[in-house]
């Protein structure tokens, strides 16, 4: 199997370079991550993040043949060779396929990703009707892998000011939650040329989400909620 992988070591390299690899997958290798781990046993200087290897932790997001995805969910038999691997577009590269996610998580924290409810909590949990719970489907499953934000042109141009699809999906997850009482404040925070309205509905986010979620739909709902709030 042929691979071309983006290599960059900040201690020794002035510029990144592409390195070719040829490796024979073994019987148990089903996903791209399996091959990467095998490669690492041959060339231990190759750096990438991985943890759960089953699409839950979100650490092995990378650009695979021009599109963002999780190496652990990418089947080998669907890949055109040479398989070209690069770090997530637009993110500062720390080393090889590892990128700096500081800004990404700063945006995530800025939308207050937790329930806000000043009322004293009931004896047991805050109840929701099945309908209220249903509204969180397609929102709570986000694993913050950054595939979407790193595929969003608006995020490439303004990574410090635009919250990006991942952060906005999370924002809507709390706006849509019946147990959260801060909806108005959350919407006020988002009503900004940069934070929300950099989105041009390109839908690259929804195209690449490895969990099949739709950040573009969440953004659409936020805009409509803002419209309702101001009318």
């Amino acid at each position: 199997m042929q691979l071309r992988i983006y290599r960059f070591n900040p201690d020794t390299d002035a510029q990144p370079r592409m390195q070719d690899y040829d490796i024979t997958p073994e019987a148990g290798d089903k996903k791209l991550l399996d091959v990467l781990i095998r490669l690492k046993s041959v060339d231990d200087s190759l750096s990438f993040r991985r943890s759960c290897r089953e699409g839950i932790c979100g650490s092995d997001a990378m650009n695979i043949n021009g599109r963002n995805g999780l190496a652990c969910l990418q089947s080998l038999d669907e890949l055109k060779q040479p398989v070209v691997l690069r770090p997530l577009p637009g993110f500062p590269v720390i080393r090889d396929l590892i990128v700096d996610m500081t800004l990404f998580f700063a945006h995530y924290h800025s939308i207050k990703p937790y329930l806000i409810n000043p009322e004293s909590p009931p004896e047991r949990e805050r109840l929701q009707t099945p309908e209220q719970r249903e509204r969180l489907n397609g929102l709570y499953e986000c694993i913050l892998c950054a595939c979407c934000s790193a595929f969003c042109p608006s995020f490439w141009w303004n990574p410090d000011k635009f919250i990006g699809p991942a952060g906005l999906l999370q924002a809507y997850r709390f706006i849509a939650d019946s147990r959260d009482t801060a909806t108005a404040e959350r919407l006020d925070y988002l009503d900004d040329v940069y934070r929300l309205y950099r989105c041009r509905t390109i839908m690259n986010c929804t195209e690449v989400c490895p969990k099949g979620l739709s950040p573009s739909h969440a953004i659409e709902q936020i805009r409509l909620a803002l419209l309702k709030q101001s009318s």
């Binding site: 983006y6 990144p16 690069r86 637009g90 500062p92 590269v93």
Partner: peptide, 10 residues
């Protein structure tokens, strides 16, 4: 910072 953002390779 080094970034990968070559639009022709996406």
């Amino acid at each position: 910072p080094v970034k990968f953002l070559n639009l022709w390779q996406i």
